[in-house]
């Protein structure tokens, strides 16, 4: 197979993965599997009139959705789907994941600020508190995976899991990264910036039309991206018997995304003070313990 055809298939798989994430997101809210639902909401949002709030901050109002979707596409472009097919193989790939995901928070802050409404602004500030808190354990558990691979190339991190996947080698790190990925993608148990019940939609409360569409699409891509990051860092990436390598990455990513939405369906929304308390009091020390444990195992 030529590299071009490979890339085409991977792009198709990626788009269908995002579509599947959209279907699963609907399921996690309503409990029904509706295969045509995402198309209908896409067309609805595409054709709907754009209502702007009074005295919005024009610069941020226009740039925030583009920044949001842009950083997510940057993140997906450095994740390897198969040995040869990674768009940019950065020498600091593991750090870059966190660097790009920090700007999800900046985009949410900009949007919450720009709308000039109460709910949106509270949602924006909540997004800051949540994402700063949860990017701390992320960067620490990434350090542990880098320690094992002795390289920051994501392809090397996947190669280092040849004998034993990282989920078994550093289970504490996997659990922390999984929870932090849920929090970074602000999915239901942690969906405080866009909470449906208490903030009436939070950051997205006053958005309609194309901007809302960009944010919804960006969030679905974000879910797919963090699932792919979990697969690359902890579930052995493209490794697996019989099937071609990129199919394995795709299947694992879909499985992780489905588990994210299942957690969101069956868990109640966490309180905001609990969210911060659990992370700073238990998450960060556990992440430090994880680094220590991996270091000891590596030296033995």
């Amino acid at each position: 197979m030529t590299p071009f055809l490979n890339g085409f298939i991977i792009t198709l798989l990626f788009l269908s993965g995002v579509y599947a994430a959209a279907v699963m997101e609907r399921w996690s809210v309503t409990g029904h599997v509706n295969w045509g639902g995402p198309v209908r909401s896409f067309l609805l949002l595409f054709a709907r009139e754009e209502i702007k709030t009074r005295k919005h901050d024009k610069v941020f109002f226009e740039t925030a959705p583009i920044l949001f979707i842009g950083v997510i596409l940057l993140t997906i472009s450095i994740l390897p789907f198969a040995p040869g097919s990674v768009i940019i193989d950065l020498g600091t790939g593991a750090l870059f994941i966190n660097a790009a995901l920090v700007y999800v928070m900046v985009a949410l802050l900009m949007m919450g600020w720009a709308i000039n409404g109460v709910y949106a602004m509270i949602g924006g500030w909540r997004a800051i508190a949540q994402l700063i808190a949860y990017s701390m354990p992320v960067v620490m558990v990434l350090t542990a995976t880098v320690m094992r691979a002795e390289s920051m190339f994501l392809t090397d991190i996947v190669e280092s899991q040849k004998g034993l996947w990282n989920i078994l080698y550093q289970p504490v790190g996997f659990i922390l990264f999984y929870i932090s990925a849920l929090a970074i993608a602000f999915l239901p148990p942690f969906d405080l910036p866009t909470a449906g019940g208490e903030l009436a939609g939070g950051v997205w409360a006053d958005l309609t039309g194309a901007r809302k569409l960009l944010f919804r699409l960006g969030r679905l891509t974000l879910v797919f991206t963090v699932s792919a990051a979990v697969v690359v860092l902890y579930l052995g990436g493209w490794m697996g018997p019989w099937l071609p390598d990129f199919v394995w990455t795709f299947l694992k990513t879909l499985l992780v995304a489905a588990s994210f939405f299942a957690v969101g369906r069956f868990m109640p929304r966490i309180r905001h003070d609990h969210l911060l308390e659990y992370n700073w009091k238990y998450g960060v020390p556990l992440a430090l313990y994880n680094i220590f444990q991996v270091g000891v195992v590596l030296l033995l």
Binding site: K55, H56, D57, K58, L90, G91, T92, L95, F96, N98, A99, V102, Y103, M105, V106, L109, W113, A114, I115, N116, M121, W125, I128, I132, S135, V139, M152
Partner: peptide
Amino acid sequence: FLGVLQIMMMGTEMSIMAIFMMMYMMDPGG
């Protein structure tokens, strides 16, 4: 490495700065 580290650290730091500005100066949106 330094560039990526700089971009990562400043994203967090300047957002914190924004929230502190907002707390102490209280200007409405724009």
